[in-house]
Design a protein around this nucleic acid. Structure first.
Length: 333
DNA sequence: CATCCACCGGAAATGTTGGGAC
DNA sequence: GTCCCAACATTTCCGGTGGATG
C-alpha cells in the first residue's frame, strides 16, 4: 500500500507547468530581460529563485545557459561549462583561461545569449570576481542573471568598475508565507499523491513549521514515502527529524566527504557541549578521519570548508577575534 | 597598559592532473 | 612517451585581531 501516484512533482528539481506563486518577481524578471538588462536575483534559500529563473529561461528567445556555481566555482569551470553548452565545441581541462574566454566571446558576438550564474556566492568566495569582470567587458548581446542567497549587495562583493558596468537590476525574494507554502504543497500533492491519501492538517502543520520550500517538499516527500495509506498530522510530526535529516543529507551529498566528516564532528560536539570553537571541531574532525582511515586536511583548509557549510545554512557561526575565545560558535540548524 | 590567546584569512609554495605539440 | 604549460587542491607561512588577564 502506498500513497504515491507519481513521485516526480515532489522532487526538488521538479519544474511545474504553471507557477502561480512569485508572480511579481516573475514579471520583474521578464521585464528586465526584455529590456536587455542584467539582473541580480537575491533571497534566502528555499524561496524559489532557481525555479523562477529556470522557468523564465524556457520562454526566452535567446541562447541560454544555466550554470550552478556550487559546482562550477572557478572562472575556468564556468567558462568551460558555458562553452560546452553554448557551442558545438567541447573543451576539457588544460587550456588557457584566455582561450576559453576567446571562444565564448566569439560565440556571444554571433548569437544573443543569456547566462545564469546560480549561487554566485560560491564563485565569489572561491575565485573572486575575475569572471564577472571579463563578462562585464564583453560588448555583446549578453544577458546575465546573477543569483545569490547570501550576498545581498553585489556592489560590496564585486569591484567598483565591474559593478558599474553590469548595473544589475536587483530583484529580491522574500521567504514564503505559511499560506504560500501550503498552496504549493497542495498543488504538488494533487499531482503526485493518490486521492484521499493526505490530511489537510498535515499540510498545515508543515506549512506553519518552515518557510523553506525545499525543506517543506522534502518533508512531504518523506511523509509520503513513509505513510501506510494516509498522511496524517501525527505522522508528519513523527518524521520531522527524519525529514530534516534527509534535507541536510541532500545538501551534504553535493559536497566532499571531508565536508561530511566535518559536519559530523560538529553534530557530535553539539550534543556534548554548549559552545563549540574551531579548534575543538578541527580536533574531532581529525579523530573522525583517523577512524575512517582518511587523511585529514589542514586547519586552514577546514576553515574554508566551514565557510561552505555556512553558505548552505548548515551551521551558523559568530565571528569574534581575540579574547580567550578564538572564533566560532557553531549551531546546527 | 602590555601581553597573550586561538584563531582568521591573504599570499606564496607545493603537488597533482590533464592537454597539446613534438 | 616526453616536455612544457595551465588549472586546481591543498599546505605552508605569517601578519593581524581585540577582549581577557595580570
Amino acid at each position: 500500500m502506498t500513497t504515491i501516484k507519481d513521485i516526480e512533482p515532489l522532487r526538488n528539481e521538479y519544474i511545474p507547468e504553471n507557477i502561480f506563486d512569485r508572480k511579481t518577481e516573475s514579471e520583474q524578471l521578464e521585464q528586465a530581460l526584455e529590456a536587455a538588462q542584467n539582473v541580480h536575483v537575491h533571497g534566502p534559500r528555499g524561496t524559489g529563485k532557481t525555479l523562477i529563473v529556470k522557468k523564465q529561461l524556457e520562454n526566452l528567445g535567446t541562447n541560454t545557459c544555466y550554470i550552478s556555481c556550487q559546482k562550477q566555482d572557478t572562472q575556468y569551470k564556468v567558462l568551460r561549462k558555458a562553452v560546452n553548452e553554448l557551442t558545438s565545441k567541447t573543451v576539457g581541462s588544460g587550456h588557457h583561461t584566455s582561450e576559453l574566454q576567446r571562444i565564448l566571446k566569439n560565440q556571444i558576438d554571433v548569437v544573443e545569449t543569456t547566462i545564469v550564474l546560480d549561487d554566485l556566492d560560491f564563485l565569489l568566495l572561491n575565485d573572486g570576481d575575475d569572471l564577472l569582470y571579463f563578462l562585464s567587458r564583453l560588448e555583446a548581446d549578453l544577458g546575465l542573471i546573477l543569483v545569490t542567497a547570501n550576498a545581498e549587495d553585489l556592489s560590496e562583493q564585486v569591484e567598483e568598475r565591474t559593478f558599474s558596468t553590469l548595473q544589475p537590476q536587483r530583484i529580491g525574494f522574500e521567504p514564503y508565507t505559511g499560506e504560500e507554502i501550503y498552496e504549493v504543497l497542495a498543488d504538488r500533492a494533487r499531482k503526485s499523491l493518490k486521492p484521499k491519501s493526505l490530511r489537510r492538517e498535515a499540510l498545515t502543520y508543515i506549512a506553519s513549521s518552515t518557510q523553506n520550500l525545499t525543506l517543506a517538499l522534502t518533508w512531504l516527500r518523506t511523509a509520503a514515502q513513509t505513510a501506510e495509506n494516509v498522511i496524517t498530522e501525527t505522522l508528519t510530526k513523527q518524521i520531522r527529524q527524519e525529514a530534516c535529516q534527509a534535507f541536510i543529507d541532500e545538501k551534504l551529498q553535493t559536497l566532499s566527504q571531508h565536508h561530511r566528516l566535518l559536519y559530523q564532528a560538529i553534530e557530535e560536539l553539539n550534543d556534548e557541549q554548549e559552545t563549540i570553537q574551531t579548534g575543538t571541531v578541527y580536533n574531532r574532525y581529525k579523530q573522525l578521519c583517523q577512524a575512517y582511515n582518511k587523511d585529514s586536511l589542514s586547519n586552514r583548509r577546514i576553515s574554508d570548508f566551514l565557510k561552505h557549510l555556512e553558505q548552505f545554512n548548515l551551521i551558523s557561526s559568530d565571528y569574534h577575534y581575540g579574547g580567550k575565545n578564538g572564533k566560532t560558535r557553531e549551531i546546527t540548524l
